[in-house]
Each structure stands twice: as C-alpha cells, then as structure tokens.
C-alpha cells in the first residue's frame, strides 16, 4: 500500500508540473485578458477537484452509516479537508483573476456567492466534528452532515440555471463588442485545459486524500494506544 501511494504521489507531482507547463509555457497569452487568464487553468480544475473530494465525503458518509467501519469516516474527513483546500484555491484564484478583469476582488454574483457558501458549509462540517466528544457519535453526525452538505456543491454547479443573471464568464472570455465580428479564440486553450482538468479533478485530490487517510489511521492508532494505556 505504501509503495503504491509513493508511486501515485510521484505520478501526481510530475502531472501537476506538466499541467503547470501547459498553463504557463505551452498555452498562448490570452490577448484580451493578458497573462492573468492563465490562472484559469488552475481555477476551474480546482473546483472539479473539490467536487471529487466532496463526492468522496458523501461516499465515505454513506458507507460509514452502512458498515460502521472507521475507514469510511476517514475517507469522509479526508474529502472535506482536501475539498475545502481546493475550494478555497478556487475562490482565491477567482478573486485574483477578477481584480484586473472586473476591476474588483469580489462581486455578489450568484455563482461566487454559492461557491463561498459551499466552502463555509464544509467549515461548518469541521466545527460540527470538533463539537462532539463521543467518537462514534462524531462519526455518525459527520457522515450525516457530509451527505447533506453536498447539496451546496450541487447548487454551485446548477446556480446558473436557477439564477441566470450571473456574470461568471463562459469558458472563453468575452469578445470586443461593436467590432464587425468576433476575435478568434486564443489557440491551445482546450489543449492546456483538458489535461489540467483531468489532473486536478482526479490525481491531486485522490493523492492528497490518501495521505490524509493515512494521517487519520495514525491518529486512530495512537488513540487506541492511549486507551490501552489508560485501561491498563
């Protein structure tokens, strides 16, 4: 197990570096937005990474309720921490992109708001976890809340349908108005985006979650030792 994790970690690091090369070396500068557009190659993939991680939380939650095996709860908590990091990364890169392009760090756009609420929901998950001393009850409640919380992730994905007045842009930026046609899309966007999307939505969250699960296992192990010591 340890060996395959090390191999996976190696693959992930190489893939991320390759993805960064695609974003910062291979892809051409977006002529309308300037170099800041390159942040998009991380911004969007990190959201899908968060989605993967939070899906892991749901699977962990459901399986824990079903089997009561601690390993599923470890998966759930790993998904929350990794997903929360990726969601914050998504929010931060979005804000940094918006500053030069929209001339503001933040607007109360429906999608931005729901993405922020999504991150807060998982912060609430961590608070709830910390608020319960009884380990079994903590795992139970965390599993339940992890399942319920996925609704905010789905809301963020669907918000454009519910509240259509979002200014969140489509994949390729706006074209200069009034001209007699549109500007050709920056070449190589898709070629640079797709590998990054794949890397950040699978390899990155899975590797990080795996390490986080190992940490949780260690924690369980130490807890068990402590109990033994107290009982002896």
């Amino acid at each position: 197990m340890t060996k395959s994790l090390h191999i996976l970690t190696g693959i992930t690091i190489i893939s991320v570096l390759f993805g960064l090369y695609l974003a910062f070396g291979y892809a051409r500068t977006d002529l309308e937005q300037g170099d800041i557009q390159r942040i998009f190659y991380i911004h969007m993939p990190s959201f899908f990474g968060a989605f993967t991680a939070f899906t892991g939380t749901v699977i962990g939650g459901v399986m824990y309720l079903r089997t009561r095996h601690v390993k599923w709860d470890s998966l759930a908590v790993a998904g929350v921490e990794v997903g929360l990091m990726l969601a914050l990364l998504n929010l931060a890169t979005g804000a940094i992109w918006a500053r030069p392009i929209w001339n503001t760090w933040w607007t109360w756009d429906p999608r931005l708001t729901s993405a922020a609420v999504m991150a807060l929901t998982y912060l609430a998950y961590l608070m709830l976890r910390n608020g319960i001393e009884n380990a079994d009850k903590r795992r139970l409640f965390a599993s339940v809340y992890g399942i319920v919380a996925i609704t905010t992730v789905i809301l963020t994905l669907m918000i454009i349908r519910i509240v259509p007045d979002t200014i969140h842009p489509a994949v390729i930026g706006p074209s200069p108005q009034n001209a007699e046609g549109v500007f050709e899309a920056t070449p190589r966007v898709a070629a640079a985006l797709l590998p990054n999307l794949l890397i950040w939505s699978t390899l990155v969250p899975i590797t990080l979650m795996w390490w986080r699960i190992r940490l949780e296992n260690k924690s369980e192990h130490v807890q068990k030792l402590r109990m033994e010591l107290i009982n002896s």
Partner: peptide, 16 residues
C-alpha cells in the same frame, strides 16, 4: 451550532 450548520444548507431554499 445550528445556525452555522443550517444556514449554508438552506441556501437553495432561500434563493428559490
């Protein structure tokens, strides 16, 4: 803890 846990989750309801 209830408002913290509940407010984000009921956002879909509030929005609609």
């Amino acid at each position: 803890l209830l408002p913290i846990a509940m407010l984000p989750v009921v956002l879909p309801v509030i929005l609609t």
